Simulated assay, not measured.
Amino acid sequence: MTAKRNETAEQLTGFEVAPNGPTGRPRTVFAVPAPLRGHGPARIISLCNQKGGVGKTTTAISLGAALADYGRRVLAVDFDPQGALSAGLGIASHDVPNIYDLMLGTVKDAKEAIQQTATPNLDVIPANIDLSAAEVHLVNEVAREQILARVLRQVKDDYDVILIDCQPSLGLLTVNALTAAHGVLIPLECEFFALRGVALLVETIDKVKDRLNPALELDGILATMYDSRTLHSREVLERVVETFGDKVFETVIGRTVKFPDASVAGAPITQFAPDHQAAEAYRQLARELITRGAIA
């Protein structure tokens, strides 16, 4: 029975199928993507979850680097006042043009705020604590939910994908990120309290889709900090798959101390520990997104 099921899955996907993965589905070996003949316009993906510490910034950094390694031109936008994405890539965020300046219009040209990282094809627009004042300054602006979209419109033709690392809230900044995006990726820690908030986030996504951005799609839910040794992690992942089905990525990110070590080093996990299973997991996620058509 299992052999027949795997054979059918292989015929449908066109990829080699291995034994079942953590999500309970046949594990697909996603093919290495072919090089692109041209670049742009970018597909914009917001990484959102109102709960902190679920792996949004780690995913933005590691996924961006993995896509860059596959020849995609990537722009990572730090949209969190904590500036963790900027720090995690070793990028200066103070005394330089940043996303706050672009949102307020004190810097007009978005290209002035873009910084190159040590990873070829991966650029960053940094953020710092100043961004925390943006909601106060923008509250009386006309079309305040669309300011980030107008900023990114200037540079979207230069990239294949733009990843927005959102702050852990559902305030005006996150609504801006959802209004600017084509898709949403939800990193979800395999823990019960993280699971409880997903329904509220999906409701917010639906409201933005209905009122501000009809093109917005849920690209998928990424299980993070998974520990196969604990029954709790396995039960949470099973519950997520039961609820969201194919919207849950087959790729699962395990818990490891290599992520904070890479952050301290200011480098993506794919460079800090390229042979580690965590680096391979993010390379698989990049391949899965490309296979799904979420990224060219």
Rank of each mutant, 00 (worst) to 15 (best):
I61F: 02
T106H: 13
I61Q: 00
C48V: 09
G71W: 03
L89R: 04
P97G: 13
T106R: 15
T59K: 02
A65C: 10
F79N: 03
A60Y: 01
I91N: 02
I99W: 01
A84I: 09
T57K: 03
D101E: 13
V96A: 07
D95H: 15
P81M: 12
D80E: 14
G90V: 09
K51S: 04
A65S: 12
V54R: 00
V54N: 01
Q50W: 07
L89N: 04
P97Y: 05
A60Q: 03
F79M: 12
G105F: 13
K51N: 09
P97A: 15
A84C: 14
Y100S: 10
V54E: 01
C48E: 00
L75G: 01
A76F: 03
R72C: 09
T58R: 01
Y70C: 07
C48I: 05
T58N: 08
G83C: 10
R72Y: 09
S86R: 10
R72F: 13
G52D: 08
R73Y: 11
L47P: 00
Q82P: 08
K51T: 07
T59S: 15
P81E: 11
G64H: 01
D95V: 09
A60F: 02
T106I: 14
T106G: 10
T57V: 10
K51A: 05
D95I: 12
K51F: 06
I91A: 05
I91Y: 04
Y100G: 05
L104P: 09
I91F: 11
L63Q: 00
K51P: 04
V54K: 01
C48K: 00
V96G: 07
Q82R: 11
G83N: 12
G88W: 04
V74L: 07
I99G: 02
D69Q: 15
G64K: 00
Q82S: 13
A66D: 03
L102V: 14
D95L: 15
R73T: 11
G105T: 14
